Simulated assay, not measured.
Amino acid sequence: MLIGSLLDEINKKIQELMGKYVILDAYYIRLAVYKAMNLQGTRKDSSITFMVDDVFYVLQKCIRRGISSLNTDCICTVINHANNILLTEYTEALKKNLSASNWTAVSQHLLQGELNNVSGRVQSENAQKKYITHLNDVESSTSCIIILHNESSEILQKMYLSDPPKRLKVLSCLEAFLQTAKFFDSLLSETLLKTCSTIFYKLVDNMLQGLLDLRYVISDEELLMTEVNDPFMHAFCDGLKQVMQPFKKYMTDTNYAKLCRILMPYIARSYEKVVMQMKFNYNGALRLDKDVQYLLSFLTNLTGISVRNKFYRVLQITCLLTFEKAEEAKEFLLIESDTERWPFTNKEAREILTLRTDYSEEIEQLL
């Protein structure tokens, strides 16, 4: 009886101590994280700011300190505090940094040709690097959250190996980190999409409009000339390379791949839209096919990923237009239009074939 009362008293004191501990620890976490979030600059040879490494170092130490208490409620409370900070103060810091870099405004001036002096170009490059670094912070934060979850999960599973109910409780709390990681990943995707729509989409549209000034109803001699020199396609690729170069240089590989996966489908759709406003003869169609192959090779080298699947519709358009005779196009359509991957309706296929001026009169009869 005496021992039972003594144990109850000890448990009561432990609970009181743990209650005070989690209050003090919550205060310490916020104080340490706030200090870390106010650090400026990047580490040498690093693509992220000091803030990311330092914030997650603090969170890792706090969670491990909570685990060392061996108190399930205390561990869950510390985990919840850490996750709540990531979703509130830390998220706001990431968003604030992205807004404060103001890269989009500078880049709009750059695309409009308003930064022709050296100081203007330096200003733009510095702003680009700062903005890209903060994008890297978001991506790196997602990775750090997953690492924090996995490390803590491994420790807790071993710790509660013989106590399934408590193990389930702490691991359930820990799952919130994975939801936060998904939230950060969504934030990154939204920001990259906004970057593309603000800068890259306008750039692509403006440059592709130059295609409408070119003739694709050309002679044999003119076709040979384009084999030697194709100023438009070279200029288009050079312009795209120039605006992508800072991203390729300063972005993490993961972020750059995500950016390219957003941008490539848009380039393909825009290119198709312009092509559908043009006219071709057989030689012009051969020139278009050469242009498309050059563009695909360039984009593959620029992005490091295969882009042919993004340009599948464009490739099929060039295929339809490069048949020498309309009858050949009809035979091709009879075979391909029944396949699941064929991207065009009969109406769309007819519209594509009518772009060929040298056999457009036959199309209505054939189709």
Score class of each variant (00 low, 15 high):
residue 8 D to T: 15
residue 17 L to D: 07
residue 28 Y to Q: 10
residue 36 A to R: 00
residue 43 R to S: 08
residue 47 S to H: 14
residue 51 M to L: 07
residue 51 M to Q: 13
residue 57 Y to I: 04
residue 59 L to T: 00
residue 79 I to W: 12
residue 79 I to Y: 09
residue 87 L to S: 12
residue 93 A to Y: 02
residue 102 N to V: 07
residue 102 N to I: 03
residue 108 Q to A: 08
residue 108 Q to K: 10
residue 116 N to S: 12
residue 118 V to Y: 13
residue 133 T to C: 02
residue 135 L to D: 06
residue 143 S to L: 12
residue 143 S to N: 07
residue 144 C to N: 03
residue 175 E to C: 00
residue 179 Q to N: 14
residue 180 T to A: 07
residue 188 L to V: 01
residue 189 S to H: 10
residue 191 T to Q: 13
residue 191 T to N: 10
residue 192 L to V: 08
residue 196 C to I: 05
residue 203 L to A: 15
residue 208 L to P: 03
residue 217 V to F: 02
residue 218 I to W: 09
residue 221 E to F: 05
residue 231 P to F: 14
residue 232 F to P: 00
residue 232 F to M: 04
residue 233 M to P: 02
residue 233 M to G: 09
residue 244 M to Q: 07
residue 259 L to A: 00
residue 260 C to V: 05
residue 262 I to Y: 09
residue 272 E to T: 11
residue 274 V to I: 07
residue 274 V to C: 13
residue 275 V to N: 03
residue 276 M to F: 09
residue 277 Q to V: 03
residue 278 M to K: 11
residue 285 A to S: 13
residue 286 L to N: 15
residue 294 Y to H: 15
residue 297 S to A: 10
residue 307 V to A: 05
residue 311 F to S: 10
residue 314 V to A: 14
residue 322 T to C: 14
residue 333 L to M: 10
residue 340 E to Y: 15
residue 340 E to P: 11
residue 343 P to M: 02
residue 357 T to L: 09
residue 363 I to M: 03
